[in-house]
Design a protein around this nucleic acid. Sequence first.
DNA 1: TGCCAGGCCCTCTTTAGGGCCTT
Length: 201
Amino acid sequence: MEQVAIIDFETTGLSPNQGARATEIGVVILSSGKIVDRFQSLMNSGAYVAAEITALTGISNQMLRNAPSADKVMREVSKFVGNTPLIAHNASFDEKFWNAELLEANIRQKNVFACSMLVARRIFPNSPTHKLADLVRFAKLPQVGNFHRAMADAEMTAHLVLKIEETICKTYATKVVTHQLLRNIQTTTKANVHRLLEEQD
DNA sequence: TGCCAGGCCCTCTTTAGGGCCTT
């Protein structure tokens, strides 16, 4: 696969449309089947972290008090990522926060997202669920750090993407899995996935 | 006043409803 960036946000809620803000971002760069670079930071937007969110992520208001501002972090991470295509687990969630936080920081940047969850539903239909934690167990991937922390989730998603790539290549004798192919897999119907992959070189 | 995401996908489906996923 060409160079891609795997991204994960921790946030104060489920939607920026409800006022939720990002509290942490983790990004790993995948190149030639390996993690070659990393970016991780807490980010202070001034938003309040509810107790149930701290219980889930371990990220507290106290931890964010001395964290760099969300603006500063987004300026840094947008440069770090550049125009590299992005992948996230349930990308519709992370894409909303990526665009919302870029907008808050007055940064004009558009990145193309692919979704590891939608692709995993098609490539690993027998996994009991398609939550990241269950896919890590199902595919026997390394558990890195704690779930629901941005860098750990980004790294485990990266291992999942590599496993997806390996599985496609083995099953369909596909030579190259591109970011665009992942997008094609996630947008085709489940019934057409086999035909799509059999037509690949 | 009370409520508040949203896109994908399955099915007891398409004039709809509800579970899955992300925090």
